[in-house]
Design a binder for these strands. Structure first.
Lengths: 218, 218
DNA sequence: AATCGTTCTTGAACACGTTCAAATTTGGGG
DNA sequence: CCCCAAATTTGAACGTGTTCAAGAACGATT
């Protein structure tokens, strides 16, 4: 059966993710993962290129669950502020069990050469799915977002989400409530701030910002 | 002479920094540093707690040189936009030789437990010195920055600087010219944007932003 | 100059992530 | 049922960052 191999792979991933959660990144050694999964250390490398590759597995799973929960939250909210809150809190909910592991995750993910890097080729599907969440959040918002911003906003919000994640990693408050407060405070502010896009003086500066943001990408 | 010990320490730091620049972080092994400095590998650990600690040494030196060059740039410019440009370009100039090493540096620095982490206790002097640069940039600016923003702005700009650094690490364009363009574009935009703080509609939102930024820190 | 505590230095050892040649298992075709 | 090629698994090995007990060099005190 071809399933046997897949079974070993899944066992390894499952064990690795559980250990990441329970004892952290560094204490979760490849040998320990393999032992717990009942295979040799070398064998783990038949299924995963590296320890980082197991982190990528986590990233993909977390992202998938985020998409699912975010969709649920978006069904319930119409205003941009509430939609944003829903999406961001959903993300925090999914990541919560991994908070102690967060710093190592980010340290791994930030390397341009890592498969976990959210900008890397290996992460393109996960990143696209994540971007899609923010596209939906923006597109479905009532009242609608100013037309001028509609195309750039999802990407910018996704970047904000990366920022919130970073903040969350450093947030040692109980249950990361500071990050929760940040989300609760920032979401309505962003929504309100977008309304200013129609103020003439602001509009000009905003155009410049958008132009810069576009020009600097290439 | 007490200088003998200090000499060994400096030799190690000098060799390490040069190797970081020339062959990158991973290829610069502790054994290689020690060998090149003419001591045993174990001895390097008498002077530096860890490899990361050598990165901290680099951080401190880079920061010191940044402060120096930024001060020079600030002497020549009065407007906030020009002052910001000067400070940011000075930072990029100092970091330039280490660009290939940047990703590893950031990956190290981003760990809350690392001595290199810019928010860590070990980095407090370097961080304060860096903040001071932005305080000077803001305080000396003519026309003056809106009073409301004067106290928070340096910290926010310093955060922007962290963001620019991150952008720079990922910037693979020749000579990191995209980052240069980002700085040239963003500096005047920030200066212009601050002027909007006096527009009534904007002022209210801005108050909320500042309040949130303050409340979320504790 | 001899002594002694401190500072400095060494080299072997450890656990880690990772590699790889060799061994084993698997599954399909004769 | 047997055989072979491919897929899977092993265990030993490598180089890494780091630790540490032991020793060597130093410098102040007598």
């Amino acid at each position: 059966m071809a399933a046997k191999s897949e079974q070993t792979r899944q066992k390894l991933a499952e064990v690795a993710l559980r250990m990441f959660r329970e004892i952290g990144f560094e204490k979760t050694t490849m040998r320990a993962i393999a032992a717990e999964a009942g295979v040799s250390a070398g064998n783990a490398y038949y299924y995963f290129e590296s320890k980082d590759d197991l982190v990528h597995e986590l990233y993909v799973q977390v992202q998938a669950e985020h998409a699912e929960r975010a969709a649920g939250a978006l069904d319930k909210a119409g205003g941009l502020a509430e939609r944003l809150k829903g999406v961001l809190h959903a993300g925090l909910d999914v990541m919560a069990p991994y908070h102690r592991f967060g710093a190592d995750f980010v340290a791994t993910a930030i390397r341009p050469t890592s498969p976990v890097n959210p900008f890397s080729a290996a992460s393109t599907p996960a990143r696209e799915a994540s971007l899609e969440i923010f596209r939906k959040a923006v597109d479905g918002a009532r009242p609608a977002v100013p037309r001028k911003l509609r195309s750039d906003l999802p990407e910018l919000l996704w970047l904000c989400y990366m920022g919130v994640t970073l903040f969350w990693v450093y947030d040692t408050s109980e249950g990361q409530q500071r990050t929760r407060r940040l989300v609760d405070g920032a979401a309505p502010l962003i929504a309100k701030g977008l309304g200013l896009a129609r103020v003439p003086g602001v509009s000009k500066v905003l155009d410049d910002v958008l132009n810069l943001s576009r020009s600097v990408r290439t």
